[in-house]
């Protein structure tokens, strides 16, 4: 937010409130992702169940933010930085909501997995997810600090996540091929891996929004992409 406050205090309050709701919603998403990953790596069903239950909170934030944005546009006609605050809040909230959904989906699958997963798979998952968690934290910090350079960093590091996702997929595919009994767990793990990668994509979307919010410019050019995804048909 700009340093000088608005002449109309209630308008100032409404924008501040919108901003703090995004930050709170982002905090819940960070927590959901953290717990979902912990649940799958430490086999903690309580964590998984609480992620599933708490997703409702994140959904409610999305509805609240949408209402606040509609009210601001209808009643305040925001301009310039205020307009960008308002519009990006709407878009960021919908990416955060998806992140919440994906964390919930990971948790649902966690509850269906067997107790003992091979260590190499867990390690591969942790490598992707710790990067994604770091991204999510960075982009929420970038939003809070109105930092376009931090947003740019997050945007650029999506490539690494794509590469780690592919490595993790390869491990899971190997695991699937080892034994027919691995079919259930392996399939869930493929989806879990994909979900984590999708969360990374949503943080990249948020990075684009933060960059636009701060600079008024769109991040141009193609998104950095990792190596092409490995398809299951490979030898």
């Amino acid at each position: 937010m700009s340093e000088a406050p608005h002449t109309v205090k209630s308008y100032e309050e409404e924008l501040k409130n919108l901003n703090s709701n995004i930050i709170k919603m982002g905090g819940f998403c960070e927590e959901a992702l953290g717990k979902a990953i912990q649940a799958i790596t430490t086999r903690n069903s309580d964590h998984a169940e609480s992620v599933i239950k708490d997703d409702e909170k994140i959904d409610k934030f999305e509805t609240l933010i949408e209402q606040q944005v509609v009210n601001l546009i209808a009643l305040r006609q925001p301009m310039a930085i205020d307009l960008r605050e308002t519009v990006t809040a709407l878009k960021i909230s919908s990416d955060l909501e998806r992140i919440g959904d994906l964390a919930k989906n990971i948790s649902k699958r966690t509850l269906l997995l067997n107790e003992n997963l091979p260590k190499n798979l867990v390690d591969a998952l942790v490598r992707v997810s710790s990067n994604v968690q770091k991204q999510l934290k960075s982009i929420l910090d970038a939003y809070l600090d109105r930092s376009s350079s931090m947003a740019m960093n997050v945007w650029e590091s999506d490539e690494k996540i794509d590469d780690l996702t592919n490595l993790c997929m390869q491990e899971v595919i190997k695991y699937l091929k080892e034994n027919e009994k691995n079919l259930d767990d392996g399939t869930h793990l493929l989806f879990v891996t994909k979900n984590i990668e999708r969360i990374g994509d949503h943080t990249t979307n948020v990075a684009e929004q933060v960059y636009y919010l701060v600079t008024g410019e769109y991040l141009e050019g193609d998104r950095p992409k990792g190596t092409e995804p490995i398809v299951t048909g490979e030898k």
Binding site: H6, T7, Y11, A80, I81, T215
Partner: peptide, 19 residues
């Protein structure tokens, strides 16, 4: 001017942050 003005004074004026 209304989406992304260059000058802070312009921005303060059009967003109602003046004075």
């Amino acid at each position: 001017i209304f989406k992304n003005p260059d000058n802070t004074k312009t921005q303060d004026y059009i967003t109602g942050r003046f004075g």
